[in-house]
Design a protein around this nucleic acid. Structure first.
Lengths: 205, 205, 205, 205
DNA sequence: AATGAATGAGGTTTCATTCAT
DNA sequence: GATGAATGAAACCTCATTCAT
């Protein structure tokens, strides 16, 4: 989904936020549409008026998750920096963006294990194909900079795909354990991003 | 579950294997007890004869997942090696162990996002406390060696918890994407483990 | 609905046509108001603006079905013909009229099996009483001519009600199987009507 | 479905009877599975344990309806009678068989209007193909004897398909209006069958 | 040790209907 | 006259679980 996707209505957006939160808390499978509706202070009908199925709702949450990250990182891509610096900037953009929209990313990560749906409609399959494509496009941003670094001799020669997947999981690690806290130092997230960037770049060199 | 836990009967073990496989494929939530029974070529009764509930079955799958990794890595712990070498040996043991029992680990990873169960029995809570404890003990093995390395000046000074979580996700990354293939080179998994060990250690130095 | 009922507005008539078509295709129960609206290229609101409920819409479709047949056959009634000739003329009028407004009759036939509605409003009950009355009046046209023929000795003596019901189903049989086709001979429907008239009259003699 | 179909368990048969009755009374669409369960004095679960869906339940009711009629008429087929006599015997067998299993036939007749289901599974489509085939086979019994009679000059020359469909509706007409009554004369149904046979044969000659 | 029948709670989805605009 | 949002009741169906055998 490019930054030029059609604007989303206010009501739809509220529903997506609620769905992301509830799916994050209870798990996308265990959470019911009623749970989402209750969190919204509304009834199921409101949700089904905007989304044709639970799968579609989940899909749009995931699509937004991917879009949030993509939008944050995209501006860095075209800057003329050496690969290790560009990668650092990408991670410094990625981590705060992800933690700022944590519910969405807790949801999309649930879908990374290649679980097969029991039955899906053609519409839902199309939606999930779109998500896969978006995710692949996002990964390719990182793949390109790693490849560039390896060619330029700034990164160690090694299997590119393995390096890419490992690095992406490394920079997404906080999604698994981070919880925002009231007493959290202001600099916590930037520091975290910096440490992850250090580790990521070091892991390649 | 320590190496001295009571032996598991043949029938129970078969059921756990089937459950791990089905939970991996369909997701632990979406998979039904009937799905597991069908995969087993039997009926639900057989499963309920050995496990009191679906939660208990899932719990024992996770417990086994943790135990498989722990058993593989434990022997390395007491060897007198410098921290970076010990960590390398731990990872070289961890990765093949995990990929050799992949279904179990695909299942336990589903539980890593801090999802709150809607309601559970006291028995199941006890079981999951046990899993958490086992997992914590396993993480402590890595935490100790990283701390030792940082104290000895072999690893960069940085936030220990962040480093630990990031490193664990790095070495578990293949659980997300690895799929055994018939035409896979014999050395694929050891090579993968070696690359991950390189990346992990580099990320700390 | 007698030929002197109030005229129906253009918009109402369009809605009734769409409803008849959709109820025919999907079945009156399975079809939703949204299905009708979609067929109309509009939204539900348009329908609810003209009809107070789905039951009323269905009722008016049925009423029209009965009126179409009644209007076509009524002119024959007062002609001074011997019963078998009058019956023939009635059938020759009935069949093309019915097949010319097939969707309406496919709908009303769905209601002929004496199905009990689960719950209806007083308004709807009144509407359906009207349909029953209209239908009874229409049947009485045929009942009278059969009775006349039996009295005059032109038709075999037999149970009048059974003969009437059987004959009406015979002449409505095409509603079950007829489908208009582009390559249909011009004379198909008149020929069909003639054959049914032959069969019907023969069945009584 | 031939008389050699697999035997149906007691529980399944009870459910089918209840379903036929409820579908007849309320209409197959309007009746809910809960209605059927209530009529059985059981819960939905019992029904879903034996039938995978409402469509399948409805399908098996229709299949039984077709089988009841087929079984009653089949013995007549191979007797060496002149066509009009054979047709009379067929009708004399058909009518009591149908009225003796009226609920089933009130249900199957609902399906004769070519209504399109909104969505069906492959399984259900297969089931309904089977019903169509069974129905076609049954019609062919009548088609053959009519054709034979027309060839032998005992029946009037006319369009065979039209004659067949009309005649089948004629002999099924009581399904639309018949209701068993306590005070009904013992001979009512045989007399009815005789009158219908008379009308049917007369309609062809 | 295992099966098959049955239950009951809860989930997703549909849909007639209402209402503000 | 018509739309789009929203509701609430009821439908279909799933599934963990229990029980008699």
């Amino acid at each position: 989904m490019s930054p030029t996707s059609p604007p989303i209505s206010r009501s739809k957006s509220e529903i997506l936020d609620a769905a992301a939160h509830v799916f994050m808390t209870l798990g996308a499978d265990a959470a019911s549409i009623d749970d989402v509706a209750r969190h919204l202070g509304a009834t199921k009908g409101r949700i089904y008026h905007h989304f044709p199925s639970k799968g579609a709702l989940l899909g749009e949450v995931c699509l937004r998750a991917a879009a949030f990250a993509h939008e944050a990182v995209a501006p860095v891509i075209d800057t003329p920096l050496p690969p290790e610096d560009k990668l650092r900037q990408m991670i410094l953009a990625h981590v705060p963006a992800v933690l700022g929209t944590l519910p969405y990313h807790k949801v999309i990560i649930q879908s990374y294990l290649g679980i097969m749906q029991k039955s899906t409609t053609a519409q839902e399959r199309a939606l999930f194909d779109g998500i896969r494509a978006e995710r692949a496009a996002y990964q390719d941003l990182f793949r390109a900079v790693i490849a560039e670094g390896m060619e330029a001799g700034r990164f160690r020669q090694q299997n590119l795909s393995i390096a890419l997947q490992s690095l992406l999981l490394l920079v997404n690690a906080p999604v698994f354990w981070y919880q925002p806290r009231a007493d959290e130092p202001e600099e916590f997230i930037p520091d975290l991003a910096a440490q992850l960037a250090d580790m990521a770049i070091a892991s390649l060199t």
